[in-house]
């Protein structure tokens, strides 16, 4: 028995073998150069505009704002991209695609902009990773097959898992050091020692606000808060995907009236031919099991 249901799916598509071959070529051209690069370029820009500094600098990664802002911003694009791939193709990799794409963009920037052009070491500008969260989100959608349940459970886990999955990357930077008789974290010292002319210290927002007062469990309180806002964001961006991903076209009917057709995926199938007629000279199809 085959691992996947590929053969049945291909059969159900009613495409001739050359059509199947062509569809794989379309997959290759559409997926890597168009979908993947399009997502990584635009998501990278979107993310850097909204949460860039938190992700760039090691001394911005505090227990409150970094933990709150990053999941909220990183769930937006996956929401819309997941809508698109899930609704039209039942492909459950929208979040992973967005966030690995973001990281491809990030690492190009780290190597070319931060390291090669601006001469900052890569550890100082190490980005956070949310690929783990994205995988959890995609798996939730695949298993629940419901955007609502995904928003509630998947996105909750998406935001809550941000801190524990990034702790191994950044814990070292919270080791204490003493410089000039003052206690600093290593991250603070790195922010101090690497001179940033255009980014003075005061731009950082370090644990400003009242979340801090909840018995010192700042990071979990922030993650919880972030999870709720992320759920809202995911839902909004899922709807953005719905709005942008509308697909319809205009059909000219028998009496020459143009009207809007929404279910474009049916075009070219036998059902379509039965419902809307065929071109002159093409015989109407006969469906098996249907009269």
């Amino acid at each position: 028995m085959a691992l996947f249901r590929t053969a049945e799916i291909i059969k159900a598509s009613k495409l001739p073998p050359e059509g199947v071959k062509l569809s794989r070529m379309i997959d290759a051209i559409y997926f890597i150069p168009i979908a993947y690069f399009g997502v990584f370029a635009t998501f990278h820009m979107h993310f850097d505009l909204l949460a860039g500094d938190w992700d760039f600098w090691i001394d911005w990664k505090d227990r409150q704002f970094w933990v709150t802002v990053t999941p909220i911003v990183e769930v937006m694009y996956p929401g819309a991209i997941m809508y698109y791939f899930w609704t039209f193709y039942r492909q459950p990799f929208g979040a992973t695609l967005s966030i690995t794409g973001l990281l491809v963009g990030k690492w190009i920037t780290i190597v070319l902009a931060w390291y090669w052009w601006a001469n900052f070491p890569a550890n100082f500008v190490m980005p956070a990773t949310m690929v783990s969260s994205a995988l959890i989100l995609d798996c939730t959608l695949l298993l629940t097959r419901s955007w609502m349940l995904t928003a509630i459970f998947g996105v909750w886990a998406f935001a809550m898992m941000f801190n524990p999955s990034n702790y191994p990357l950044f814990a070292y930077s919270h080791q204490p050091v003493v410089v000039d008789g003052q206690l600093l974290s290593l991250a603070d010292y790195m922010g101090f020692t690497f001179v940033r002319t255009g980014t003075p210290e005061y731009i950082r927002i370090i644990e400003v606000g009242s979340l801090r007062t909840f018995g010192g469990h700042t990071v979990w309180i922030s993650a919880f808060f972030s999870a709720f806002i992320s759920m809202l964001m995911f839902t909004i961006w899922w709807q953005v995907g719905h709005f942008v991903g509308q697909s319809f076209f205009w059909v000219k009917g028998k009496r020459g009236v143009r009207y809007r057709k929404n279910d474009i995926m049916i075009v070219g199938t036998d059902e379509y031919a039965l419902r809307h007629g065929t071109l002159p000279g093409v015989p109407a199809p006969v469906l098996e099991g249907k009269s």
Binding site: S13, L15, S23, F31, F88, Y89, M265, T269
Partner: peptide
């Protein structure tokens, strides 16, 4: 992440699935 995407890339991804989904 790439492994996960690859799991779906080895099979027909778009056109065929869209046609099946419409049925």
């Amino acid at each position: 992440g790439f492994l996960w995407i690859g799991w779906f890339m080895v099979r027909p991804m778009f056109l065929i699935r869209a046609r099946v989904l419409a049925q």
